[in-house]
Amino acid sequence: MSANTLSNEDLTGFRDIQRLAYDCAEAVAADLQPGVSEKDVAKKMESWLMDHGVDDWFHKPFAWFGDRTAFDGFIGFKHLGGFNPAFYPGNRRLEEGMPYILDCAPSRHGYTADIGYCGVVGENKLLDQLMDDLLEYRILLLEQVRQRLPLADISRAVDSLCARHGYEPRHKAYPFETLAHRVELLKDDGKQSHINLAHFGLRNIRELVAGGWGMLKGGDSPIWNSGKRADHAPTPGLWAVEPHLGFRGTGAKWEELLVVTETDAYWLDDDVPHVRRWQSRGLWPLEKVA
């Protein structure tokens, strides 16, 4: 599938499910109270989405609180290749001033989104700074994809921006040090639910594995990171991009779909919570990356 083959109707479908996912995060976030656990919140997001017609997942909702937003501790760059049970929602309870991240990837009628939303109950200056700085990554990524630079180079540019900011690129704690991954259009088979394994939806993962197989046979990588395999121009299609910054136990991210065509690229939707936040803080639009 390439973006050229995605119809306007398809793009609308993807945009709708991304909005739904962000609506879910905002609705659940609005009700967050100190004392609630990661598992409670993840479950709440799951039922909210199911109530709104979600029939499959790329992955079921995750929630991380406190220093788990920065994957501090055991999750290292190399531990278990990043496949780590610590990603799954745990019993950590939310406290006032504690940062949190909500991450969910629902599918509906074959359209999939993958979003990341962060916030805090109360105030957290470090989190504010991280969330402000995340703007530069959104601009840098789009600029360099438009220049059709190799994906690995763009990922390394993200790494250097992190170094300049004094942050750690914590998306490197994800499987395969993923800065972004492909999202494919699934068949709308009309079923109410689909099989998932250990929080991951089988159909979406099958697409990703197929992409990986294609890569081994000489095709492009379905995973966008700093590695050699991603040393090629941006592949047309949809990419769920998720820069994740960490600073001494506080982490922040956003995640949204980037549309790449043969010649151009654009964010599927500018009306997302983090962009609205930058607007309200007078940071948007930013002229250029530092």
Partner: peptide, 13 residues
Amino acid sequence: VALDRSIELAQLL
């Protein structure tokens, strides 16, 4: 520029 950034982060801490 680099130093200012370090100082900002230290102040945030």
